[in-house]
Amino acid sequence: MRLEGKCAIVTGGASGFGRGIVEVFRREGAEVMVADLNRDGAEAAARETGSRAAGCDVSKDADWRALTAAALDAFGRIDVLVNNAGITHLPKPMEEVDEAEFDRVLAVNAKSVYLSARHVVPVMKSARAGAILNVASTAGVSPRPRLNWYNASKGWMITATKAMAVELAPEGIRVNCLNPVAGDTPLLKSFMGEDTPEMRAKFLSTIPLGRFSTPQDMGEAAAFLCSDAASMITGVGLEVDGGRCI
């Protein structure tokens, strides 16, 4: 029960890594608000895990205002925020990614962190406590070709995490990020361009432990970094990558 008594928001919590984080958080005793653009998916995840649900486009300020209010109405406070929602563009030469794709990737992967801070950080400052976890990627540490602007958005998240950690430490707020390697989630096909045995083998050949990351892997790492056991850890980018970044 590492998170007993804590109240958390998990964005992108309806599926993939987010769903794994929600499941482990609930197992560890946290109350959880599952936020997702897919409202039906969020409600299904909430029913199956005993959580609360909210629809949220993390790239929209009004949605963050509503999500923050919903969490405060449900729980009375926000102890943990997990910025997990993310998207990518399909693998292609950098100059062929159109402006709409670029804007959407940066809005969901980068602007969302800024918007979350506008609404959730004041709540945590009032409590003089809190843990924020941004889900970045090994792509921000060791970029893959043909995913250029996705790589850049995740590098932004890593730097934002460190900057937030420095500024918020005096307020009692810790900020860390996870850098997962590609996982067997709905986004995997988008990263690879096509889901074939040959393409999976190509990706797996870059991971020394020889497997993709799983939602459970992310949940376990997230639970540790958001728990009091990690009370002296802030500004860290934890690679959950099977050794890919070595």
Rank of each mutant, 00 (worst) to 15 (best):
E101P: 00
E95K: 12
L147G: 11
V141P: 05
V135N: 13
P143N: 01
H119Q: 05
V108M: 02
E96H: 08
S112T: 05
M94A: 08
Y150A: 02
P145F: 04
A110N: 09
K92Y: 11
R118T: 10
A127D: 01
R104I: 07
I132E: 11
N134I: 01
V105K: 06
N151C: 12
K125I: 11
R146Y: 11
R128A: 12
W149S: 07
L115H: 05
R128H: 08
T138G: 04
V135Y: 15
K154T: 01
S116H: 00
A129W: 11
V135K: 04
L106R: 12
I132C: 15
S116V: 01
P145W: 05
Y150H: 03
A131T: 14
P143G: 09
A110E: 09
R118V: 14
A152Y: 13
S116M: 02
E95M: 14
A110C: 14
N134R: 01
N151A: 08
V97Q: 10
R128I: 03
L115T: 04
A100P: 00
R144M: 13
R144I: 08
S142T: 12
M124E: 04
E95C: 08
V141I: 15
L115F: 05
N151L: 07
P122H: 13
A127Q: 15
R144P: 13
F102Q: 05
I132L: 11
S142W: 10
V120G: 07
I132A: 12
P93N: 00
S116E: 04
A100I: 00
D98Y: 01
D103V: 02
R118Q: 15
R104S: 14
G140C: 04
A127I: 02
A136G: 03
E99V: 15
V105D: 05
V108N: 03
P145L: 03
R118G: 10
V121K: 03
A107Y: 04
P143F: 03
A131W: 09
V121G: 07
P122K: 09
M124N: 09
A139M: 11
S116Q: 00
S153D: 13
K111E: 13
N109I: 02
G140E: 04
P145A: 09
S112K: 12
L147N: 06
K154E: 00
